[in-house]
Amino acid sequence: MNWIRQIGRTTLDRVSATGRAGLMLFGALIAPPSIKNIPLTIKQVYVVGVQSLAIIIVSGLFIGMVMALQGYTILTDYGAEGSLGPMVALSLLRELGPVVTALLFAGRAGSALTAEIGLMKATEQLSSLEMMAVDPLRRVVAPRFWAGMLSMPMLALIFSAVGILGGHLVGVDWLGVDAGSYWSIMQSTVDWDKDVINGVIKSLVFALVVTWIAIFKGYDSIPTSEGISQATTQTVVFSSLAVLGLDFVLTALMFGIE
């Protein structure tokens, strides 16, 4: 009998956690946008966006360089080095840009968001805000959420652009692919709506998921040092899994059915 009860309890826990997460986001976003929150949001864009720039640019550069190197060794067997440009650009814009940015963002910024909000909860800063009649959902959660939603697509675009330049560095400057064919075949293959805009849509969805998970895990954490460490780990694990799973669904919707 006990194991049936266990299943029931797990189900109820999951469902109520999902409900709490929805209520938290609803409570944070339903608030009328006030001018006072804009400086708070800008500060959070600095924390989650600008401070992630270094890791995004470095990984974008190296991923572009590695792809050019790997692609060149295979494509050169068929005498199709000219297709290096579209290969690098399409894989960055459609997949690697949004996905790798989301994974790095979850590790770099998501975990920090969880830890920060969790610690605020543990040191009862959230309760004291409520005591002062300040809604912590509007004051703490909403700016962080919007900052994540803004920063991630921007980071993904920078990632793709830097990666394409990295591919140019290796493919054209080191391996001797013709610069003209690198760019021109890329231009005739890459479509603005289909590739660039779909990539941005992907990274908006990932931004929603990763930021939401990060904030909720912090907001809902057990306010002890152990609880916060657990919540931080869960943020990275859950958001990475969610990003990879959703990526398949989004890819199937965007590119699978013609």
């Binding site: 800008i42 864009v45 600095y46 966006g49 600008v50 720039l53 650009a89 814009l93 920063s151 921007m154 675009l157 920078i158 793709s160 652009a161 830097v162 394409i164 330049l165 760019w183 890329m186 231009q187 005739s188 890459v190 479509d191 603005w192 590739d195 660039v196």
Partner: peptide
């Protein structure tokens, strides 16, 4: 943050003009 926004615009321009043409 302003620098961040400008970098994004630069990336977007690169993608628009140089990549997607």
């Amino acid at each position: 943050v302003g620098v961040f926004v400008l970098m994004t615009i630069a990336a977007l321009l690169l993608l628009a003009l140089k990549v997607a043409n």
